[in-house]
Design a protein around this nucleic acid. Structure first.
Length: 835
RNA sequence: GCUCCAGUGGCGGAAUCGGUAGACGCGUUGGACUUAAAAUCCAAUCGGGGUUCUCCCUCGGUGCCAGUUCAAGUCUGGCCUGGAGCACCA
């Protein structure tokens, strides 16, 4: 064994050996229980960043730990390789997106291997390869056949900069998630997945996800946005047979309606507008169209609107009230029309004040009854001015009033969701083509399954502006109808990359299958994912879509489970100097540099060491240095003592006092580290325990020297050597999931055959995983007054006696009345005194 | 506005159940080794006060104010601050 630690040499060596031996290949059949550890697969942008390093290190440590614990571990990796950056690179440098992507994948693969990650490379999937997107297309067709993929003309989010539409989930604060450009509304005919059919199940099944953080679950629940209310229909006075339905969560306030608002895009708005008002309404609608989403949705904007000139009749009171259009009503939500009760809704109140509309109180504010001057009263209360419902609590009235509407045939109970269908068409080239053909005779027809994949054309011009490069292909659009064989045209849009990433974790179970996306047997064997690790930025996007896919595929009979990810760990960001590492801020750290200067083991150790995985992690150069020093310290511990170490150590009890203490320290470390990993993967405390154990071995060693170490004399007895061997071998194994190369190197230097990563995880003995002495804390009235060393085995009565026998305690309790004494076993005695 | 998460030394953070607050590390300071430096090793490191002054005593301290309890970083109620998500969603 070398005297000094040369990580680069060691790491290269073992990476080659592991690759040669296919050390991390996972067989499908095994008598061990399965464990599926998964990182969110990367977009091949060019180089790994520290966020990747953190993500993959966390998952890798989990995978290796589980493997040592006796699981058959599936730990795969792949590439989310469709998407705009490849296309942009193509436009800017004239590169082929496929080539650009391949080169990036090659480079990043090299980096992943340098990090020492235990991936089964035989299961690698790449979403932009025909053997993958064939099945993305196949799945699209299955969803289409089930009615879950459909095309409709709708107001959609358009990013001019990216030249494509976006899903609702990809619009962040009114801006494009990718380029930050302000998103516009456009009316286009687009493909959607009917995720709204699954709204209730997606919400309900969040309850099953005990292994997910509450933050992610609430974000999804908010996004789905369930509310319970009623649809109420109002007859229009001026137009025979026309009704305006509204959705409300406050049917209890129906007697307080003083006007009604429809969205500017409301479908019947023209019928509802009288000739006198037509010009003003048209102008208002034209203006609303022009406004950006941000302007329109801004909550601090002053509300505007115009009257339509028509009226509705309130079936509860017989009163007439006017119809208005205002852009605070949203056409996509509910019915696109809102009943306005200014007395009990802040928005309606503002609007009513501005346009001098009446305010009618129907819920009594206990503080200022029958008045509503300065603001709406939105709290609970008792109904007034509401005919037979007067005196009823408003919470009860919701039910009773809706029931009356149901009985009268002008309303019903209604559950409403905020979630919208998932828009999956993209007017871009670098994506999976939507496998649909338009035939004049047969209509919208899916491509025949045997003709899949619908290949991306390569005869395209990337320099075109204002349209998708795919439209420049001379070979792509013209095709024949799969039904009638006549001339037909292909769909020119490709799929959102989030479609590709909604099922990749299923493909890993059976990545080479060329007759199906995956066999049911294998997908049911490996899934659900036992531990998923990735960034919080996917809390809604990818994680919601994947849940939807899993449920839809279950309904199609392709698999048998309905949640894909049993446990989810959302790791925090990697910061430097307090802010997120980013190229624009210039505070990035290049993983390659760290590998080169310190080695991957130091990088892995450091990125886990300072913060728990879910929290943000502040990168510091001093911290890296500290971890490197620690590894050197461990290395020296082994190399300085190598001549005393034996892999076939044997402990014979009883041991000498110091040896017994060290053995106990090792058992405590094993227990603590195992528990810390098992309990939410607290790697930061795991690493502090590596250090504690290392320090303890050094201290023990120092105690054995008694100043004689330098002369090189063997001062260790047989027992000492066995104990030291036990301690060091345990440390090396405990560290193996983190410092994968160093542990492997030392393992072999100690003469072991095979890989440390195939060895069995250390076990502890509960009798030994505790100190032989305890420190008894003696409190008086809850304040610590004395600490006394006592034997581990003493019972409560004895503890009490020991405490009362203390000179200090005697002094402090002299002349006082002892009211009671509380004993916490093996820990503490609290004496309560008075006077 | 609503929802969720967090708040502990100079810093990152520890503290299964309510039971010794500050593990472990970074940084800092002092020392050893060295011609010197690096590396390494040893020691100190929450604050105030006291003292027979390197040994010890004492008081205070986990965002703020209350409460429950023998005992609160931990539980309850009310605030404050920061972060994240949602937001004219009727």
């Amino acid at each position: 064994m070398k005297e000094s630690y040369f990580p680069q040499e060691i790491e290269k060596k073992w990476q080659a050996v592991w690759e040669e031996n296919k050390a991390f290949h996972t067989p499908n059949s095994s008598d061990k229980p399965k464990y599926y550890a998964l990182s969110m697969f990367p977009y091949p942008s060019g180089k790994l960043h520290m966020g990747h390093v953190r993500n993959y290190t966390i998952t890798d440590v989990i995978a290796r730990f589980k493997k040592m614990q006796g699981f058959n571990v599936l730990h795969p990796i792949g590439w989310d390789s469709f998407g705009l950056p490849a296309e942009n690179a193509a436009m800017q440098h004239g590169a082929d997106p496929a080539k650009w992507t391949d080169e990036n994948i090659a480079y990043m693969t090299k980096q992943l291997k340098m990090l020492g990650l235990s991936y089964d490379w035989e299961r690698e999937v790449t979403t932009c390869k025909p053997d993958y997107y064939k099945w993305t297309q196949w799945l699209f067709i299955q969803l289409f056949k089930k009615g879950l993929a459909y095309k409709k003309e709708a107001a959609v989010n358009w990013c001019e900069h990216c030249g494509t539409v976006l899903a609702n989930e990809q619009v962040i604060d009114g801006k494009c998630w990718r380029c930050d450009n302000v998103v516009e509304k456009k009316y286009l005919s687009q493909w959607f997945f009917k995720i709204t059919d699954y709204a209730e199940r997606l919400l309900e099944d969040l309850n099953k996800l005990d292994g997910w953080g509450d933050n992610v679950k609430t974000m999804q629940a908010n996004w789905i946005g369930k509310s319970n209310g009623a649809i109420l229909r109002f007859k229009v006075k001026e137009v025979e047979g026309l009704e305006v339905p509204v959705y409300t969560t406050r049917p209890d306030t129906v007697h307080g309606i003083t006007y009604l608002v429809v969205a500017p895009e409301y479908k019947d708005i023209e019928k509802l507008t009288t000739p006198d008002n037509k010009e003003a309404v048209e102008k208002y609608r034209a203006n609303a169209r022009k406004m950006s989403e941000i302007e329109r949705l801004s909550t601090d904007r002053v509300k505007t609107g115009v009257p339509l000139g028509t009226h509705c009749i309130n079936p509860f009171t017989g009163e007439e009230f006017p119809l208005w259009t205002a852009d605070y009503a949203l056409v996509e939500y509910g019915t696109g029309a809102v009943m306005a009760v200014p007395a009990h809704d802040t928005r309606d109140f503002d609007f009513a004040k501005k346009y001098n509309l009446p305010v009618k109180v129907v819920i009594q504010n206990p503080d200022t009854p029958s008045e509503c001057k300065d603001s709406a009263y939105t709290e609970e209360g008792v109904l007034v001015n509401s005919n037979e419902f007067n005196g009823m609590k408003n919470t009860d009235a919701k039910q009773a009033i809706t029931q009356k509407a149901v009985d009268g045939g002008f309303g019903e109970f209604k559950t409403q969701y905020r979630l919208r269908d998932w828009l999956i068409s993209r007017q871009r080239y670098w994506g999976a083509p939507i496998p649909i053909v338009y035939c004049d005779k047969c209509g919208i027809v899916p491509e025949k399954e045997e003709n899949l994949p619908v290949m991306l054309p390569t005869d395209v011009d990337f320099s075109v502006v204002g349209k998708s490069p795919i439209t420049t292909s001379k070979t792509f659009e013209e095709t024949t109808c799969p039904i009638c064989g006549g001339k037909a045209k292909r769909e020119m849009d490709t799929m959102d990359t989030f479609v590709c990433s909604s099922w990749y974790y299923l493909r890993y179970s059976d990545p080479k299958n060329d007759t199906l996306p995956f066999s049911k047997e294998l997908v049911d064997k490996w899934l659900p994912v036992d531990q998923y690790v990735g960034g919080i930025e996917h809390a809604i996007l990818h994680l919601l879509y994947s849940r939807f896919f899993t449920k839809a595929l279950k309904d199609l009979g392709l698999l048998s489970f309905d949640e894909p990810f049993k446990n989810l760990l959302t790791q925090g960001m990697v910061l430097k100097d307090g802010s997120k590492m980013s190229k624009s801020k210039g505070n990035t750290v290049d993983p390659d540099e760290i590998f080169e200067n310190y080695g991957a083991d130091t990088a892995r150790l450091f990125i886990l060491s300072d913060s728990p995985p879910a929290r943000d992690f502040d990168w510091s150069d001093a911290g890296v240095e500290g971890c490197y020093k620690f590894l050197n310290r461990v290395w020296r511990l082994v190399s300085d003592n190598q001549k005393y170490l034996t892999k076939d150590y044997k402990l014979t009890f009883p041991l000498s006092r110091e040896n017994d203490d060290l053995v106990r320290t090792v058992h405590m470390a094993i227990k603590g580290i195992t528990n810390d990993i098992s309990n939410d993967f607290q790697f930061n405390t795991v690493i502090s325990k590596y250090r504690e154990l290392t320090n303890a071995i050094y201290d023990w060693r120092g105690g054995k020297c008694r100043g004689k170490c330098k002369d090189g004399n063997n001062t260790l007895t047989d027992e000492d050597q066995n104990v030291l061997s036990f301690a060091i071998i345990s440390l090396i194994k405990l560290m193996a999931p983190v410092t994968v190369h160093m542990s492997e190197e030392i393992w072999h230097d100690l003469g072991f055959e095979g890989s440390v990563h195939d060895s069995k995880w250390c076990e502890w003995d509960d009798n030994l995983a505790k100190a032989s002495k305890i420190t008894l804390v003696v409190q008086i009235n809850g304040k610590v007054k004395d600490k006394i060393e006592a034997d581990e085995g003493v019972n409560d009565e004895e503890l009490k006696a020991i405490a009362l026998a203390s000179e200090k305690i005697k002094e402090l309790t002299a002349g006082k009345e002892i009211v009671k004494t509380i004993v916490v076993p093996k820990k503490l005695v609290n004496i309560v005194i008075r006077g």
